[in-house]
Simulated scan of single mutants.
Amino acid sequence: MRYLVTGGAGFVGSHVVLALLDAGHEVVVLDNLSTGHRQAVPPNVKLHEIDLLDISATSEVMKQGPWDGVLHFAALSLVSDSMRDPFHYLRQNYITALNLIQNCVEHGIKKIVFSSTAALFGGPERLDPILETAPVQPGSPYGESKYMIERVLSWADTIYGVKSACLRYFNAAGADPQGRAGEDHRPETHLIPLTIDAALGRRPALKLFGTDYPTRDGSCIRDYIHVTDLADAHIRALDQISHNSVTYNVGNGQGYSNLEVIQSVERVSGRKVPWEAAPRRKGDPSLLVADSTKLKRETGWTPKFGDLDKIVETALLWREKHPMGYEK
């Protein structure tokens, strides 16, 4: 099979590219490299450095088919930034996805796997793992932009028969166990790599945003899913959308608090993590944990790296071997 991956030079996208290659598929990447890295794209994979805002340039890539499907990861993804600049986030994420979906319709591409988010459920606090049927109440413009795209995909199915898989995943973390790819954001905002860098003395003391949440230790609780397990879920989702569109929550179903992440990094690295309390960030719910029963039942998916220490171990190995990320 031959697949186009948008945002394939980014964290999750690059790991999905590896999973597709490992499964024997041909892959082409479309990425504007605003947050992705050219070095994250394997040398045997064609990279089109194009912005999805340019609908004509996107169309030229689409003409180079045939394509068996598109996997869409390209997006702005910081909740806190979306709270500061909501219109930019809504415009950028929505229009780029709209351009892509329109091109899929025009070029006869019938399968789309969409990188959605658990930020759709950022409204009222939930104490139980979140099902796909939970009310969608985005707590940020970032989450809202993703839900807007899900609605466009629904209409693309109803009117044009384009089938899609919307994967609402939680906190992607870790790195490729073979060391071929890892996490390298500029700036880095994810808790696990920030905590590792604090332990390694590469950054000042970690800021823990919020220590007064209604959780077991006062810090936020999140469902961390290894990026390789997440990539596997995308591959399995492709097989599910030959006839029907699907929506899946993707996570381990196990919540870990921010303080427990610090403790895990200390166990795995053998180093103390310097940290200090900081005020809560707007848009951050106290608890987000996935119920992935539907995904497991319908696709046979099960996480292979569900243990937090294992996730941290792969992330630590990547950051130790790549102290400057993808830069030499």
Rank of each mutant, 00 (worst) to 15 (best):
H25Q: 05
L308W: 08
S82V: 10
P193E: 03
R168C: 00
S80R: 10
L167A: 01
W67N: 00
L317P: 00
M324L: 13
E266N: 03
C104G: 07
A205L: 01
W67C: 00
K328P: 05
V261C: 04
I149Q: 04
G7F: 11
N93I: 00
H190I: 03
T228V: 13
T299H: 09
V268C: 03
Q39F: 13
A118N: 00
A23V: 07
P42L: 09
I109Q: 03
F121C: 10
D68W: 01
K321Q: 05
G139Q: 08
T211L: 12
D31Y: 09
G201Y: 14
D291I: 10
I241D: 01
Y224H: 10
E327P: 04
L295K: 05
Y213N: 11
L127V: 12
K282W: 13
N252W: 01
L90V: 12
N258Q: 12
A165K: 04
T96N: 07
D239W: 10
P204N: 13
I225M: 05
D184T: 13
Y142N: 11
D81A: 15
Q102Y: 05
G161R: 14
R202I: 11
G255S: 04
G210N: 10
V28S: 04
Q178G: 12
E49N: 07
Y248P: 00
V28N: 00
H107P: 08
G325K: 01
A118C: 12
S34H: 14
V28D: 00
D291S: 03
P303A: 05
G179Q: 10
R2N: 04
R236Q: 14
D176M: 00
R222W: 10
Y160I: 04
V12H: 14
L100C: 08
L30D: 14
G123C: 14
I101F: 13
L47Y: 13
S14C: 09
K111C: 02
G253T: 01
T302H: 04
A165R: 02
S140A: 15
T117H: 00
A19R: 05
S59C: 14
N44Q: 15
K294G: 01
Y142P: 04
A290L: 04
H25Y: 06
D22L: 13
K310A: 13
K294L: 07
N32G: 06
A198M: 13
E298S: 13
L100K: 08
F209K: 12
V5G: 05
D229I: 06
I149L: 01
A156R: 02
P86G: 12
H88R: 15
P274M: 15
A40L: 04
K207Y: 15
P285A: 10
G270T: 01
Y326A: 06
R168M: 02
A290E: 03
